[in-house]
Design a protein around this nucleic acid. Sequence first.
DNA 1: CACTTGACCTGTCCGC
DNA 2: TGCGGACAGGTCAAGT
Length: 293
Amino acid sequence: MPELPEVETVRRGLERLIVNKTIKAEEHDTQKGFPNNPEEVAQFLIGATITAVRRRAKVLLIDLSTGYSLLVHLKMTGQMVYVDDAARFGAGHPNDSLIHELPDRSTRVTLTLKEGGKLFFNDQRKFGWMKLLPTELIMETPFMQKVGPEPLEATFTDEVFISRVRRRKNSPIKAALLDQSVLAGIGNIYADEGLWGAKIHPSTLVRDVTDKQLRELRTELQTVLKLAIEKGGSTDRNYVNAEGKKGSYMDFARVFRKENTPCPRCGMTIMKTRVAGRGTHICLHCQPEPQHA
DNA sequence: CACTTGACCTGTCCGC
DNA sequence: TGCGGACAGGTCAAGT
């Protein structure tokens, strides 16, 4: 669920809440993957000041004064939540919050800050990970080597999008959008939303999608990603921002999780099906089924 | 090389 | 009520 808008929302929250603060202590459970090297944690994490919080694709990059960075991937159910020492979840905004008390049983890593407050990495399904890495080596990791362009940067032009998507000519267009080496940050929610916006059936093979449709799709993806960031992301089940609060994009979603409701464009009932191994939401009137797929 | 499928996990929901 | 199975969906390894 955390896709580009959710990770970007967390990034913005963390930037506001933890930059210039110093990590005093670290605790973790026995989850594989962290700490990757306890000696590095002692030397380069404990006592480090957080200098910046960046994002590339769906990965958070928390830069430290020691020349190391903490990389975090939330995968499906990961959360990065900052709590100050006086926080009481749900107080005043009971509908905003999914979290009542931290740590809870999904907490994997807890960072205590010298200035007060704690940062929790929670992950119910344990697919997510946290890694400590020298900052200068981030871009040499296999994922960073292969990941595609950021869809909201000015360099992400129609030409760039079309040429990269065309590498997957025999794939359904939805599979191509989910491929992080084609472009960064799209997941199941925004793939469905963008394809509905561009009126393309998700099963259509890339070779059967016209350049004109791909130009519309690029525009739709950018529009929906920007709107989702503005709404603080989508909370389907687990996602919360850096303050433990839900995002509201699901209130604006046109097809995702809207099966059996009317299409906001034509009124036909939205269907749920399966494409590229994923639950997929479509309006068959707006997104006619391709002939050969 | 292009493409698809299964594995990794846990919690929830649905049918019997 | 209990229980098995499907499902949720990001990424990588292994398979065709």
